[in-house]
Design a protein around this nucleic acid. Structure first.
Length: 385
DNA sequence: CGAGACCCTGCGAC
DNA sequence: AGTCGCAGGGTCT
């Protein structure tokens, strides 16, 4: 079978979105970077992304079980573009938000140093799938980004559906609640995979979504929280095992459109005290419910309706921690070890086209400008709005 | 409300 | 080099 990897593109400034930061700052854990191509699986395909100064380039590889790929080309191109637009919250203009934050941020006015908002551009909050975000952030408790990423990867490999292969890597979808609760052995298997005490949390949460015992806890109701107010969403999430106030707020912000919510963790607490002179005890262990609430409102009062977004910039800029293996500088991506033989896929980019050569396959030369001209136009319209 | 326990890893201090 | 102690975007009992 020959896969025709066609790249489309749309213009987007890096101040609106910087992939290398956004996909690695700890709000999403499943994107892989292989030779400067970002990849991620949805339910039915692998999404591929690249960024240069002017454009986001995107492509997709359909699930292997979809035999009629060629006929779906047009449909999937559109679907992929819609996914990207939604996933990256692109209708929300970041540049103007940054300007507002700089205006509101009292910190850089009283200190001589430059504002984090001047230095760390292109960091936006994603609009992720609520179910995946829920499970991912149950994993995040008392944990680091590297290990969370590893866990999210292995939960897909173990319980997800095989989608396809790209560059020698097999891709699996994120498992559903049914996938994670159908067998009581799931918990012990997760433990074997290194989930620790979170194995139980995940299994029990998945069980709540599938069991008749909890008629209100359904996937549909979870998604509906996007249209409900913050308190409702927060309270719903607290019913789930392994979800406390911090994880609930992460899900609210990163999957449920609660843009003003600032999830308060030890790190945010430190930023509040150290940089913003929040009056609180320096001892983190004294952070109780009231302190949590106070800090959340503290940032909300500074930055307003998109406080959660602003906080993610501060948080990322403060990551002395942009570390932990996966989080290193842009150059240290996962490198695929090229064997001495021909690589599986060769991609060569020309000014007006991308040439894809598959081992044992045919050579394709795909125009970049023609097929997606309509999409490019619509993007322009949106950005000049 | 405040303590501990909790799985597991990576890192710096000896 | 090998331990040891501790924190890592917390939550449960």
């Amino acid at each position: 079978m020959t896969i025709d990897l066609i790249w489309n593109k749309f213009p987007l400034k890096q101040v609106e979105l910087k992939l290398s930061k956004v996909l690695r700052c700890g709000q999403t854990f499943r994107w892989k970077n292989v030779n400067n191509v970002w990849s991620y699986t949805t339910k039915n395909k692998i999404i591929l992304l690249k960024q240069d100064e002017e454009y986001i380039h995107y492509s997709w590889i359909a699930s292997e079980d979809i035999r009629t790929q060629l006929k779906l080309n047009c449909h999937f191109d559109k679907e992929t573009f819609e996914f990207i637009k939604d996933y990256f919250n692109l209708p929300i203009k970041l540049e103007t938000l940054y300007e507002e934050w700089i205006e509101k941020d009292g910190l850089f006015k009283i200190s001589s140093k430059k504002s984090a908002f001047d230095q760390f551009t292109g960091i936006r909050i994603l609009r992720q799938d609520p179910w995946e975000t829920l499970i991912s952030f149950i994993c995040s408790s008392n944990n680091n980004v590297k290990r969370i990423s590893k866990m999210c990867d292995s939960i897909c490999t173990e319980f997800g559906k095989y989608i396809n292969e790209y560059n020698g890597i097999k891709y699996y979808s994120f498992p559903t609640a049914e996938d994670l609760s159908s067998n009581p052995k799931v918990e012990s298997r997760l433990r074997d995979l290194g989930f620790g005490y979170r194995a139980k949390y995940i299994y029990q949460t998945a069980l709540k979504f599938t069991s008749d015992e909890f008629p209100d806890i359904t996937l549909d109701n979870l998604y509906q929280l996007r249209t409900k107010d913050y308190e409702t969403a927060h309270q719903f999430l607290l019913q789930l095992t392994g979800v406390g106030p911090k994880v609930a707020d992460c899900i609210c912000l990163m999957a449920l459109d609660k843009h003003d919510i600032v999830p308060v963790d030890t790190h945010v607490y430190q930023i509040a005290i150290r940089d913003y002179k929040f009056k609180g005890k320096k001892d983190l262990k004294t952070m109780n419910k009231k302190t949590y609430h106070d800090i959340r409102l503290f940032f909300k009062e500074i930055f307003g309706d998109f406080a959660g977004w602003a906080q993610s910039v501060l948080f990322t800029s403060d990551l002395s921690d942009l570390n932990n293996g996966v989080n290193k500088s842009e150059e240290t991506e996962i490198k695929i070890e090229q064997k001495s033989e021909e690589p599986e896929i060769k991609i060569e980019q020309k000014p007006d086209s991308i040439v894809i050569q598959r081992k044992r396959g045919i050579i394709l030369e795909s125009p970049l400008h023609q097929e997606n001209s309509e999409i490019v136009e619509s993007t322009k319209k949106r950005s000049t709005k």
